[in-house]
């Protein structure tokens, strides 16, 4: 199946060209990050089709995964 990926801010550096990725059916978000080279420790928020998601959530064909890092400076 194919997924769309949107990496935000500092996360882009881990895979700058990544926009779409071909993966096995039923892959979880955590497995997707592993395959795409994105350290889960750097990710604060994950959205699947715009909805807040947990790392063990399985993904489906055509879904869009967006990831954001933690930002906390003042």
């Amino acid at each position: 199946m194919e997924l769309e990926i949107k990496l935000f801010a500092s996360l882009r550096k881990f895979n700058p060209e990544l926009e779409r990725i071909e993966v096995d059916d039923g892959i979880t978000i955590l497995e997707l990050f592993d395959k795409a080279g994105i350290p889960p420790s750097e990710v604060a928020i994950v959205l699947v089709n715009g909805r807040h998601a947990k790392l063990d959530q399985p993904l489906h064909d055509g879904e869009t995964v967006a990831a954001f890092p933690p930002i906390a400076g003042g």
Binding site: A9, S10, E42, A44, I45, H52, P69, P70, I71, A72, G73
Partner: peptide
């Protein structure tokens, strides 16, 4: 709580301001 989840350190530690 929803923004930060279990994270207790942000990217500013690497990037500065």
């Amino acid at each position: 709580s929803n923004i930060y989840g279990t994270k207790r350190e942000g990217i500013e530690k690497t990037f500065g301001n």
